[in-house]
Amino acid sequence: MKLTLRIWRQKNAQDKGGLETHQLDDVSPDMSFLEMLDVLNEDLLEKGTEPIAFDHDCREGICGTCSLMIDGVPHGPDRGTTACQLHMRTFKDGDTLTIEPWRAKAFPVVKDLVVDRTSFDRIIQAGGYVSVNTGGAPDANLIPIPKAEADVAMDAAACIGCGACVAACKNASAMLFVAAKAGHLGHLPQGEVEKKARARAMVHQMDEEGFGACTNTYDCEAACPKEISVEFIAELHRDYRKGLFSGR
């Protein structure tokens, strides 16, 4: 396959940045998207040009590190797929692809396609956990949990924290990310105790970080590589409201 790539290059956070065009003449359809970038980078390096910086690690769709906007869609055109699991057979010979970093105020660009997502960590720090210390936990089978509830918790817990939801949202809202964590813990008896306080703290931190508000356009759900449902956002709204009034 032959491809034309328009790739975002930006030296550092201060640099204005811009698109750079590269031609690839020999792309195998069995390559993953990131392997295609590897080939380009090896080629650049051999020519003495600095390779394109992009984030990646596990390359099996679970670590949430890769973060590419491909033709304006986070992780590219395949539904429920991270960029590292996207394969070149999805594209056609002769295609032109535009590759950019996540765009959001709360995800500043570090270099080229690499952004800083530590704002997500700070949202979790604000309350995305069950406040238990190590030791002293009761037997795991002490509290039975209906399978259906545990399954809903697991659906939400599948979030990989990649930030595609933010990148897809016209408001750069982190609502789906926050709702997934709140939904995961809120559906389990262990997490229910702090449900309202958690919702309040995480939403406040989200605002603090400069993420936008949710206007229910659901682009987040469409972009989510783990296909997390926007229903969790509705639940978060409810818990947040309750949290405001109950003061707990």
Binding site: V130, A140, A150
Partner: peptide, 16 residues
């Protein structure tokens, strides 16, 4: 026990 207390959503049987 510890992981369950933290809210790790382990797979469950229908009896919970």
């Amino acid at each position: 026990d510890q992981c369950t207390a933290q809210g790790v959503p382990f797979a469950r049987e229908y009896g919970g």
